[in-house]
């Protein structure tokens, strides 16, 4: 048993597990910002009074929500970068990282949009009517009246989306980003002696990252709960 433990500890000398997890955290952070901004914009389009914008928003959600994330990432890297030669950074690794962030953002924006929209649906129609009745046009009414109240209903589905995003950063391996799942593959290949421990380390790592996200959304949903 102590031999196994020694072998296991040597794994961390051989591979930089923490640095790999750090890549996943950075992917999560930037893709969360990107998908939140894009998702809010598409949600705005889907509730706007302009029919063509609504159609565009609906089209976006149906396209990206129903496409596997792997396909999106592989398409961006092999299709858009490799074939069309569009680069997002002169640095080789940074380029892959940026494409991965973009792909994750495009994909999760569809889910963010639907989370926000489900929140908007919890706001009584009278709130929007009252906003319009005092002369607010669509954008100020959405920003000042609808979205702040929609956030209360959207926080739990948004948290779920963030958790899914965190775990989906492992798909960035498909976009040639060296993150924890690609490192795991390497470790399994060269250190099959501690294969069970490798799985456990990666699983535990994600649990440690995701649990606070869950706690945070639970706290936020209580904090924002509608006082009735």
């Amino acid at each position: 048993m102590s031999d196994y433990l020694t072998d296991f500890v040597s794994l961390f000398d051989q591979y930089d597990v923490l640095a790999a997890f750090w890549v996943n955290l950075r992917l999560t952070f930037f893709a969360a910002l990107g998908s939140a901004a894009l998702g809010a914009l598409i949600a705005l389009m889907r509730i706007s009074p302009i029919a063509s914008l609504r159609l565009l928003g609906t089209g976006y959600v149906n396209l990206f929500r129903n496409t596997p994330l792997t396909i999106i990432l592989v398409f961006l890297v092999l299709g858009v970068w490799s074939q069309l030669g569009i680069s997002l950074s002169s640095d080789f690794d940074q380029n892959f990282f940026n494409w991965a962030v973009l792909g994750l953002s495009l994909y999760h924006a569809a889910f963010v949009c639907e989370a926000i929209r489900s929140g908007v649906n919890t706001v009584p129609a009278g709130q929007a009517e009252a906003a319009r009745a005092i002369g607010l046009s669509f954008l100020p009414a959405a920003r000042l009246i609808i979205f702040p109240q929609a956030l209360r209903g959207a926080i739990t589905p948004l948290g779920n989306t963030l958790i899914a995003l965190t775990k989906n950063t492992t798909v960035a391996a498909a976009a040639s980003v060296t993150e924890i799942s690609s490192l795991m593959k390497t470790m399994i290949e060269f250190r099959p002696d501690v294969i069970i421990a490798i799985f456990l380390v990666v699983a535990l790592g994600f649990v440690l990252i995701v649990v606070p996200v869950g706690l945070l959304t639970t706290w936020a949903s209580r904090k924002l709960a509608v006082k009735r």
Partner: peptide, 22 residues
């Protein structure tokens, strides 16, 4: 915008009050 401007000049009171809850 023109409609919003006009609505600002027309006050409305609803059956269900519709005060901004937040």
């Amino acid at each position: 915008k023109a409609l919003a401007k006009l609505r600002a000049d027309v006050g409305m009171v609803f059956q269900s009050f519709n005060l901004f809850a937040h």
